[in-house]
Structures are given as C-alpha cells and as structure tokens.
Design a protein around this nucleic acid. Structure first.
Lengths: 161, 161
DNA sequence: ATCAATGCAAATAATTTGCACGTCC
DNA sequence: GGACGTGCAAATTATTTGCATTGAT
C-alpha cells in the first residue's frame, strides 16, 4: 500500500520528502516529534509522547503534537487505533503492519497478534473506486483475566457481561 | 463467536434471555430501542436513533440510549465502529458480520465491502488466553471522489494528503 | 518579506455521571 | 418494598480552533 520503513533514518527522510512535496515546512518540532515516535516500541498516545518530550527537556504544546500526528497520519507514517470510546492509541505504521489487535472490552487491554494471513489479505485487497492505504483489524472479546474475575464476582455494578 | 440472529423477533427474544440471565429488568425503553435498531438497515448513531424514536412519538433521553446501546454491546447484539475521531457508528452485529469497512480519511465516507475471506478468517481465529466475540476490519484510504477533487485543487488548507 | 507553524487559552461536543423520581420484580 | 432504570442537568475530557507570536523559506 505505501512506505514500509523500518528505521528512524529512512522514516525521517521520507517525512522530509513528504513535507517538501506538499509545500510544508521542516520545523524542529516536527522532526523531534517523529524521532521520538520512532523510539517507541508499540502503542503510544498524546500524553505519553508529550511526557517523553518533556523528559528530554523538549517543550511542545499538545496542539503541536496533535498537528504533527495528523500530518504523520496523512503521510501514512502513523496509524491511529481507537480501541474503545476511551482508549485511543497511535502506532508507527511500519510497526503496525501485519498484526491485529485483540481488545478486551472489559478492561481495555490490547494484545498484538501476528498473522500472515491477515497481512496477505490486506495487501491482496482490491476495492473499486477506492485507493487503500492502510488496513487494521480488531478482535473484541474478553481476556482470560477478566473472564476469571467475572466468573468469580457475585455481580459487578456496570461490568457484567 | 456468538448469536447470529437475523430478525427482530429472535433478536428480541435473545435480549430478553440475556436480561433475565443477568438479573436486569425488561423495561419498555430497552425493548423499544432494540426494536428500532432492528429496523435500521446499515449504520446508525445516537442522534439518528433518537430522531427515529422521536418521530415515532417515543420520548427517551440520550442517556438512556447510551445505556441501552452499552447493554446491547455487552449482549453482543450491537457493534460499535469508530471510523475516525469524529465519525462513530453502531450497527446490528448480525448485519456487521462478514463485511469490512472502507473509510475515506478525507471525507469520512464509509463503504461496506463483503468478503468471504474476511468472514472465514474471523471465525477461524484462535487466540491464546482470549475469548473472541466479534471482529472488525477497516481499510483506510482515499475514495475516488476525494482523489479526483484533490488532484484538481490548487492546494486545500488542511485536507492536503 | 511572507506566510506557515507554534503556544496558549478558550471552544466544542460526545459521552459519562450524580441524583431525584418512577417502575419493574 | 426495594432495587433498578430513567431523565435531567452538570461534569468530564480529548480534540479542535482562534489568534498573537515566532520561525522557515
């Protein structure tokens, strides 16, 4: 579908080209944000990223982080997962390809599941009048912890399934 | 994974049993909301549902609609799709099975794509320490309308891809 | 020099929550 | 009779927006 980049260097280069092609500016903020995202293994959210940047003494407003993430999503470098109403995560697209997400609708925990079959299915896809860029798959259910907990709870106020 | 109901009657019956089993009450509000959902072909959201109910002279608060939908999701009768940050839809689970969703990240339009391969893949899935109940798959990209529009626009403020 | 990018604070809007009242078991 | 369910209004919170300032080209 689109870029398949596996290191910070080529990802940064790709982003630079993207910015140039679209007449957008290469700001320090954008560069540093992408660098930090490349260091993260797995999911991240805006607060987490903001925290990382602060920890590195790099001060950015949340607004700019949202801005940068939107840009990175347009550039197909970052992917957004809204697992539930309250659980939103982002992920480097290169890391996201080829796995699906098992989401517990009780505790909101998410487990990555690698699947060649899903990966193949996504690259095979042809859709009329539509240019696909990225696909994701979610499986909702109950994790073993919650299943156990629910089986042993008399009755929980709002969490009963 | 779970119930595969294709008419309002059996769906209503299933819901009644679910409520009884879980020590919850069979209120008129819950019954009527499910009946209305069963009439909808395709996606719906809270406002749409509320509008339908008002049109039938059945007055319910949004809070109760949210409550009922959560219950129906727990009962695996309704499924939630958060296509983008701003685009959220619900769907009867029986209608949702076996198709995936092609979402244009430009205009937010959603197209249903039937795929036996996806359906088979979802029912085949075995995940360790996890009891799957429902799976959904999203393909993000650009629809032909937006592709055309973007190719012909000089440069659009925020929508450039 | 120009116009886009940033930071800040205020606005937005979907969803959630607390509480008083009605109703199902 | 005693919870549970409902309606209302207020609270919450992630994301967006407007505007003055800074910075990239």
């Amino acid at each position: 579908m689109n870029p398949d980049l596996h290191d910070a260097d080529s990802t940064g280069k790709f982003f630079d080209e993207y910015l140039t092609e679209h007449g957008l500016r290469k700001s320090t903020v954008r560069k540093v944000i992408l660098e930090h995202i490349c260091r993260i293994r797995g999911y991240f959210d805006v607060d987490m990223l903001h925290g990382m940047l602060e920890a590195d003494n790099f001060h950015v407003s949340k607004a700019s982080i949202y801005n940068a993430i939107e840009l990175l999503m347009n550039a197909c470098l970052v992917v957004r997962h809204q697992f539930t109403t309250q659980v939103v995560y982002y992920e480097l697209k290169s890391a996201a390809a080829g796995h699906l997400h098992a989401v517990c609708r009780c505790c909101g925990s998410v487990k990555e599941i690698r699947s060649d079959r899903v990966a193949r299915l996504m690259t095979d896809l042809k859709i009329a009048k539509f240019s696909p860029e990225y696909g994701s798959m979610y499986i909702y259910g109950i994790c073993s912890k919650c299943k156990y907990r629910l089986a042993h709870a008399k009755r929980q106020k709002n969490k009963q399934i």
